[in-house]
Simulated scan of single mutants.
Amino acid sequence: MDSTQQNSSAWDKKVEEGSRYTKSVSAEVIENAKKGNWGITVTTEKTVPRKWFPESLTGVKILCLASGGGQQAPVLAAAGADVTVTDISKKQLEQDEKVAERDGLSLTVLQGDMVDLSEFQDEYFDIIVNPVSNLFVQDVHKVWKEASRVLKQNGILIAGFTNPLLWIFDDEDERKGKLNVKHSIPSSTLDYLPEEDVEDYINSNQTIEYAHTLEDQMQGQIDAGFAITGFYEDDFGGTRVLDRHIKTFIATRAVKL
């Protein structure tokens, strides 16, 4: 089974279903960004601190990595950056193209896998913005290594990812308000299923997700040549029972040394 192709098709389906993370920003958001009043998210609720970015984005080369959906890339382009957005989902990228056409933005759009950035030369980008997405990749170290390769010296990586504690609970029970510790880390969606249900799950065109250790997320960046210079946590905005107890998303700012 090709999990990349599985997740590509699954995200195309999410676009068709109108999932929250496939809904593009409004024309009003873009107009404000053109005036210098902008912000983006890489987790669920909180806005990335403006101080994590240069004072001006004019001419700054930004890669929005695994970031389709018409959310981060158009805003940064409207703020003056030279933006490339890549994603495994064709339909997610079409969301970016629609916003660019609607609001007169210049965007480079490229379908591809976040673990293989061979389309880009070494040390090309000034900033990489990577919203929560590496849960769809089995080996997160490949993401950090490729990000390091295509970033310039002193380039900035802004990444969002899940706190591994999110994955230890049975998802269906948690959504019903019960915290039932059931899974281990690292693991994948398929590990949680009875063997006889795996084929049906794949055929239902759902995403395959991977629960990474915090060490792989944080030390993985450091091993790839980054120094972590910023950190915050986020949650589901109070819509999940876990929000009462712990933040389940993390964002980091890292600089390539």
Score class of each variant (00 low, 15 high):
48 V>K: 03
240 R>V: 04
47 T>H: 07
136 F>P: 00
58 T>I: 11
29 V>K: 15
22 T>Q: 05
12 D>E: 07
121 Q>F: 06
147 A>C: 15
108 T>E: 11
130 N>P: 00
26 S>W: 01
18 G>P: 11
168 I>C: 10
232 Y>P: 07
174 E>K: 14
209 E>H: 04
141 H>Y: 13
22 T>D: 14
87 D>P: 11
66 A>K: 00
253 R>M: 12
200 D>S: 14
18 G>M: 10
180 N>P: 01
149 R>P: 06
161 F>A: 00
183 H>A: 07
111 Q>E: 14
256 K>S: 01
23 K>V: 11
246 I>S: 12
234 D>W: 07
147 A>D: 09
150 V>R: 00
181 V>C: 13
244 R>V: 08
63 L>K: 00
155 G>S: 05
29 V>F: 03
168 I>D: 01
177 G>K: 00
204 S>I: 08
153 Q>K: 14
252 T>P: 00
57 L>G: 04
124 Y>W: 06
245 H>W: 15
146 E>V: 05
44 T>K: 08
53 F>V: 02
120 F>H: 06
138 Q>W: 06
156 I>R: 14
241 V>W: 02
141 H>M: 13
36 G>S: 05
223 D>A: 11
196 E>W: 09
115 V>S: 13
238 G>T: 10
119 E>G: 07
40 I>Q: 02
87 D>R: 05
234 D>I: 02
70 G>A: 11
78 A>V: 03
64 C>P: 08
123 E>F: 02
162 T>I: 11
35 K>A: 14
60 V>A: 07
218 M>T: 13
176 K>V: 06
245 H>D: 07
229 T>W: 00
198 V>F: 02
192 Y>H: 15
233 E>P: 03
120 F>I: 08
177 G>V: 06
192 Y>K: 15
52 W>D: 04
248 T>F: 00
161 F>W: 02
198 V>M: 02
21 Y>W: 15
15 V>I: 09
42 V>W: 00
71 Q>I: 15
139 D>W: 03
136 F>I: 05
122 D>T: 06
243 D>C: 05
